[in-house]
């Protein structure tokens, strides 16, 4: 793509040390959010080769590059909070290497932060117990109603949401994994949801479904229907994951920086995410 890249973000602007194992936080935005997790692995592999970085390969007949993704983002969602760990055949200087990698990526994939991994450090996957999501609603969405809806859900002890799978409808509880739910004050409104990993995992669209149900129950004529059949709340124009980390009181410790983030941090992050998304608006 010929779209110009922006200046490097965050820590990548500098030289962040030398290492042969590197953890990165990266973005998957714009059109790339329609690329599956498996396909994204190949996108990484080719960008690493194109950037001529000395990525290490596994032994054996069909060598695989040492890039591990502890968690897969479902198709269709954007993210500025994806993580990967890279193993190099020799130590690299992280800052320049990641900048070269960013230049080789297709638009929409971008390393935002990176650091070396010390021996014996806690595994990356152990850091991803909690995720911060942001639902960006379109123009004309009633922010005040969303605020009330969010409060209704937080006040409840359980919030069942219908889930359709292979033609059958089951119920999942949104409330249990939901740590926090905050509505932004800007217009159009955004909703930040802090979710714990659960089994089966909660889908971020189910946060939206939960809010739809909450908004319907606010109307006095309605009984507690628990089915989102009214069109009171428009569909979010974008749902994105903005960070992942270890659970910490009321927020998370971001997996790469260890920084404590509250739910509202999603609003800062999506500003960045929307910037990346806009870069990739094709056509005039």
């Amino acid at each position: 793509m010929t779209t110009e890249r922006t200046a490097e973000v965050g820590r990548l602007a500098g030289d962040v040390g030398v290492a042969d194992r590197v953890r990165v936080r990266y973005a998957k935005t714009g059109r790339l959010r329609f690329v599956s997790a498996i396909d994204l692995g190949r996108v990484w592999e080719r960008a690493l080769r194109k950037a001529r970085l000395p990525i290490a390969y596994s032994e054996g007949y069909t060598p695989h590059p040492k890039v591990s993704f502890p968690d897969a983002l479902p198709l269709g969602y954007a993210s500025t909070g994806e993580y990967a760990e890279l193993g190099f055949a020799e130590p690299i200087t992280i800052g320049p290497a990641m900048r070269r990698l960013n230049a080789a990526f297709a638009t929409g994939c971008e390393v935002l932060d990176a650091r070396g991994v010390a021996p014996g450090e806690r595994r990356l996957s152990k850091w991803l117990g909690r995720a911060l999501w942001c639902l960006s609603y379109p123009e004309g969405t009633d922010g005040a109603a969303l605020v009330e809806g969010a409060q209704t859900i937080l006040d409840a002890s359980a919030w069942p949401v219908g889930r359709e799978r292979k033609g059958e409808t089951t119920e999942v509880d949104l409330r249990a994994p939901l740590v926090d739910l905050v509505v932004s004050e800007d217009d159009p409104p955004r909703v930040a949801a802090l979710l714990d990993a659960s089994e089966p995992p909660l889908r971020p669209t189910e946060v939206h479904t939960g809010l739809e149900i909450a908004l319907q129950t606010q109307e006095p004529a309605h009984q507690h229907a628990r089915a989102a059949d009214g069109a009171t709340l428009p569909t979010p124009r974008l749902i994105s994951r903005t960070a992942q980390g270890a659970p910490a009181d009321g927020g998370l410790l971001e997996a790469l920086s260890g920084e404590h983030l509250a739910a509202t941090a999603a609003f800062d992050a999506t500003r960045e995410e929307l910037r990346l998304d806009r870069l990739d608006q094709p056509g005039p």
Binding site: M1, R31, L32, F34, V35, L75, P282, P284
Partner: peptide, 30 residues
């Protein structure tokens, strides 16, 4: 001269293998 992307994008979550339709590959020329 107008891109159909704004109308196409909302349909993509409803089709198989949407990456087929997004373009944006390395070495594609805009």
């Amino acid at each position: 001269t107008r891109s159909v992307w704004p109308r196409l994008e909302p349909l993509l979550p409803h089709v198989q293998r949407p990456a087929r339709y997004v373009g944006g590959e390395d070495n594609a020329v805009v």
